[in-house]
Design a protein around this nucleic acid. Sequence first.
RNA 1: UGCGGCGUGGAGCAGUGGCAGCUCGUCGGGCUCAUAACCCGAAGGUCCCGAGUUCGAAUCUCGGCGCCGCAACCA
Length: 596
Amino acid sequence: MPQPILIAVAWPYAQGPRHIGHVAGFGVPADILARYHRLCGNRVLMVSGTDEHGTPITVAADREGVDPQVIVDRYSQVIAEDLRRLGLSYDCFTRTTTRLHAEVVQDLFLTLLAKGYVFRQATMGAFAASTGRTLPDRYIEGTCPHCGHRGARGDQCEACGRQLDPSDLIDPRSLIDGQPPVFRETEHFFLDLPQFAAPLRQWIEAQTHWRPNVRSFSLNLLDELRPRAYTRDIGWGVAIPLPEFAERSDKRIYVWFDAVVGYLSASVEWARAEATPEAWRDFWQNPAARHYYVMGKDNIVFHTIIWPSMLLGYGSGGEFGGGPERPALELPDDIVSSEFLTMESRKFSSSRGVGILVGDFLDRYDPDPLRYYLCAAGPESQDTDFTWAEFVRRNNDELVATWGNLVNRTCSLAQRHFGAVPALGEPQPADRSVLEAVAAGYGVVGGLIASAHLKSALGEAMALAAQVNQYLGEQEPWRVVTRDRDRAATILNVALTCVDNLKVLLAPFLPFSSEQVHRQLGHEGVLTGAPHFAEHPDGGGRSHRVLTGEYGAGVGRWTWQTLTVGQPLLAPQPLYKKLDPSVVDDELRRMGLEPA
RNA sequence: UGCGGCGUGGAGCAGUGGCAGCUCGUCGGGCUCAUAACCCGAAGGUCCCGAGUUCGAAUCUCGGCGCCGCAACCA
């Protein structure tokens, strides 16, 4: 029975183009899950968008002397285009600056307020002298009172590692304007997290399938849960939906509280665009639905503590939830959090120019080799280092040599000697053995993907490709064909059938090359539709661009494929480009590093 | 400072108590359909160091050393 699967993908921040570390953490893993579940026939809703509020956007805008809207309009386009080129099959990749999103955020805010989960309180805060806006701790620098380090940040000192309060710093100054910050009292709305401590603990303790670090880290946080400010003194963000704030432009809902609501608002947006405005409920108010949240590890707290608290508090909701007669919104089922990717041994950092932008990467290399690398050697369970040497090696020695070459040699032989899918004669034990191994791959690879063991899943699929290469080596169809044409036909039928099925097993990981194999074997249609842009209306005659797709139109299915004897084969084209080792030095120089 | 991770043959990793494995590279052989790709075989490791528990430890405990990450007002 088709199961509703919500894939909630972390929202990339629209401060600038994203680098490959970002898509390693949220994009590629999420897309593998989504594509797998669609092939299984499940109803998948993969949502996300650009996260467009918050202090860094306003800083970037001030620096350029433009309105924040200019910044987010620019980078939401750039980021969405990068994700499209990578083949990430979002059903709705939207933005947090839509009118609908603000309505949903405000509905949650008001509902939590009405239920007593949000309260107002005066608090001390740091402000930028020049703009009067909230100055986040990270934007304050000064001398550490403990060790005397001069570059300590407002939240911690990198030199001695101690946690700090910005008011502790000696000689503090703002990183934005260089001025000393102003400390004064301000009133904020707070989410009363301690009210959720008991239900959160009960829920998290039951999530024994979570990765151990996610679960223990989250349980740890519960011990010292404190109310958390829901608002900031800033003019850029979702407005506070209370009459007294209607005319005020100096206080907004905090960017993170609005960003996580995006999972819900994007689902509503998707449903409306499909002309089935209630369809989102099948994912959110349906206990049979499964919710995967995919992110980098720096986001765990927002997905295991804060967003679940908001969902628990909202319950069956206000305006969007539909009230007491509806079931409560579902909590996350799987928290798929990645570790970090470093770049040639250095931490990715947009501000320090360390990193490889997704767009730049795709200008020079194809998407599947990048997807392959990020899954096979990415930060699934521990921090990993991206190196160009390893990228070239993975591409040439694994992707090209094992899978690309298997497809190429099989198709070349079959095409040359038969021109079409040859007839299967009486199978021998070796034939049965390899067919059974590939057939078993559906269960093995699928089970690993569903439990988010993506690296192992890919490894299993590649091992099957290696096994088929081995089969060809033993059967030697190129030699057999000269003396026993029927036997050669059988061998090639078996090998082609294996390739046809491996194409499905690899499709979640390598969608572009699987489509190519599909065409090469003479099949009609596409395995899965490709993501494309569309305009969604947003009320008041406005509209915005989203990334979406008609993925259900594809013919791909996660089940055994049988080839039609006599189906014409196309002349084979190599699936992947072998990379010259010189690209390693070229890329290192491009990054300003000395080749080894 | 707290929490956590990592340290296994040249590279990247798996392996949580019982003869040390995988992919790649290297060397030798085979094959020649295939993008010098494919197949077979071999060499190569004091499993970071020290102590302990145990019949037995890469695996458990304690103590070191080294590297890395996170710490909820960066997003």
